[in-house]
Amino acid sequence: MPTKLENKLLERIRKGDVDAFRELYSEYFQRLYLFAQKFVEPELAKDFVQDCFLELWKNRSKLQINNSFSAYLFTVVKNKCFKHFQKEKARLNVQDDLLLRLKQEELNFFMYSEKSILEFEINDRIRKTIDKLPPKCAEVFNESRFNGLQNKEIAEKLEMSVKTVEMHISKALKLFRDEFKDMSIFLFSLFFRKNQN
């Protein structure tokens, strides 16, 4: 189900609130584009995502979202990729058709559950958040959370004190808490544990 914030945004969009629509566009365009680009050419991916938002705006008065905005939007873009694959089949040779089938299978596997959508979305947001960190802070955070090093090991590797390592990690986590305040702490912690294993 949509969150309370999503329901409020949805209600504003239904009423024709352009600012609410721009907010949704700004929040999801890049993620949807990166997703579509895994399966189709960049220009086509951009067209699919723009069409997705255009259709949403045109049909805003009767818009119904039973899951999350994320699930709804990713599913619309997924379906556009599928339709494209179906059209391409008619003009491709056997070898190209095999590659197309592989892309379809990958897309189907990737989109089959809300879990896949969530992981893709979190991955993208984590990369963007890390990019906002100062270089040394980002390096320490990566060593800690993704390479599994202890603070002492990081200090030795990067030639800094343990206290400095702790300071960098604390700074990074504060930014992550701010950037992911709309997400369940439980889901986010599960994702990080998965990446640390």
Rank of each mutant, 00 (worst) to 15 (best):
V49Y: 02
V49K: 02
Q50C: 08
L54C: 07
W57I: 06
K58I: 14
K58H: 09
K58G: 09
N59C: 05
S61A: 10
S61I: 13
Q64V: 15
N66Q: 05
N67K: 09
S68R: 07
F69H: 09
F69A: 10
A71I: 15
Y72N: 03
F74D: 04
F74P: 04
V77F: 05
F82S: 08
K83Y: 14
H84C: 04
F85M: 12
Q86R: 11
E88M: 11
L92W: 09
N93R: 14
L98C: 10
L99W: 06
L100Y: 02
L100I: 05
K103C: 05
E106V: 03
F109Y: 06
M111E: 07
Y112P: 00
Y112R: 14
K115D: 08
K115M: 03
K115G: 04
S116C: 06
E119D: 14
F120Y: 08
R125S: 11
I126Q: 01
I130S: 02
L133M: 04
P135S: 14
N142F: 08
E143N: 06
R145M: 13
N147H: 06
N151V: 15
N151E: 08
K152R: 11
K152W: 07
E153H: 08
E153T: 01
E156L: 05
K157S: 11
L158Y: 01
E159W: 02
T164P: 00
E166F: 01
M167N: 14
I169P: 00
A172C: 01
L173D: 15
L173F: 02
L175I: 11
F180L: 15
K181S: 09
I185R: 03
F186Q: 12
F188H: 00
F188C: 07
S189A: 13
